[in-house]
Design a protein around this nucleic acid. Structure first.
Lengths: 240, 240
DNA sequence: TTAACCTTTATTGTCAACAATTATTATTTA
DNA sequence: TAAATAATAATTGTTGACAATAAAGGTTAA
């Protein structure tokens, strides 16, 4: 039996499922979660080879459930696998990151549109409150990119949930956000322009409050393509 | 090393990977393909329970690779699985089909935009030729919904490929198109308004040829949301 | 008769050994 | 010395048996 302890940070309550961490019932699930966080945090470095027996030993389980975990990691694109030749941690290059941002742009744009359609008044109030919380966090925890970064994803996650579209939600939460996190953990953390980002979030929330689907989608798409442009320049600088 | 063989049918050359039939190397892959086509064709009916040992016996393999096949089917959403309780073939309800069409709308919209950016002159000529072929097919094979239906997906597939975005391509080709096929195979085949559909495809191709990204995306989104409206009315009629 | 509990059965989860494949190294030959 | 080839080692794919869990059915008590 394995017990997960949920640490509630009173200054920043996160609604992300990563934290709630439903006490997983099967060895494969637990291995999946462990390896996933190892990859995202960079403890398993990009492009490094994954040997089944090694990892099985490391986690104290047999190769069966570990294989299942790897297959699931392959699905969410944290691992690439070639038959008979083994699997490696994904290596994110510039093109791949661009693809991720472009996919996010259209999916989250649609999510914002649907959120404007489906969110209840209570949902919207709660969303506004989250943004206020973010504002306070920015003031307090200057330079603490981690919290800011998670808070950022938190906003986007709420929109994705509010879309009430399982495909969109699963894609964003199951694959794209993970890779964004991974990307940040490695390339010197966060984009770090919290005020601008917060302001854009406020505009999106406002459009949702006014039930302006068109505008909500438009603003979200701009917000994300803008984020990509910044990431891109950072990557290009780094490349020299 | 893996070699793809493209079989060219002279009356209807399909660029779909379903046809190129990569000679799969592993038992799990073969089982995956077999079960997938069984589900899509309705030989495994929606919502029916999947018992590992039964299927293993049926395909003459052991439970190990069969489990892997089921996991992969779960990823592409043809199967839903609950831990310790087994897995069932997905049961498509109206809401789920709507979600699929909405996801398609934004992903393919973006794909059309990107196609307008990336397609070469040769690509565009080939696309036009495909549409001419479709026109001939409509004239010839009246009522042969299968060809029309596959031809329809064929057009969309080319756009997705031309987007040069792996996420978008994989999502469409790996998950959404499969479910659309499945949906058609069951609910009395095709939407059957080939001329209108063809005309809309022509408009999209034209926008791509003019490198009008904005228009290409707009037209594609209309095309798909229009298709959903028709499917929706059919479903509602059927429900009575 | 119904509800709770226990027993049985069917099914999934896990394991360790075996087979097949690929990568590596050593050896031979030009 | 370099290239090609064969032997070896490492790793993945596959199998059948065993353990754990959940569903089904029957039994007992209120």
């Amino acid at each position: 039996m394995l017990i997960f302890i949920i640490i509630v940070n009173n200054t920043l309550k996160s609604s992300l499922p990563t934290v709630l961490s439903t006490e997983t019932q099967t060895l494969a699930s637990r291995a999946f979660e462990s390896i996933k966080s190892d990859i995202i945090a960079g403890r398993l470095s990009q492009g490094s080879k994954i040997v089944e027996s090694d990892l099985a030993l490391k986690y104290g389980i047999s190769r069966g459930p570990l294989r299942e975990a790897i297959h699931r990691l392959e699905q969410i694109r944290l691992v690439v696998r070639v038959p008979h030749a083994g699997s490696r941690v994904v290596a994110l290059d510039s093109k791949m990151i661009e693809d991720i941002y472009v996919a996010r742009e259209c999916l989250e744009g649609m999510a914002a549109r649907l959120a404007a359609r489906h969110m209840t008044g209570e949902d919207i109030r709660s969303l506004m409150e989250l943004l206020n919380q973010h504002e306070r966090d920015i003031g307090k925890a200057e330079g603490k990119f981690y919290f800011q970064s998670e808070g950022n994803i938190d906003f986007h996650y709420r929109i994705a949930v509010a879309s009430q579209n399982r495909w969109i939600l699963d894609n964003l939460n199951g694959e794209l956000y993970q890779l964004i996190r991974m990307c940040r953990h490695q390339s010197g953390q966060a984009p770090a322009r919290p005020q601008i980002s917060l302001e854009q979030h406020r505009q999106i929330a406002s459009a949702i409050a006014f039930r302006d689907e068109e505008l909500a989608e438009l603003l979200m798409r701009r917000h994300i393509s803008g984020a990509w442009k910044i990431v891109k320049t950072i990557l290009e600088e780094k490349h020299e």
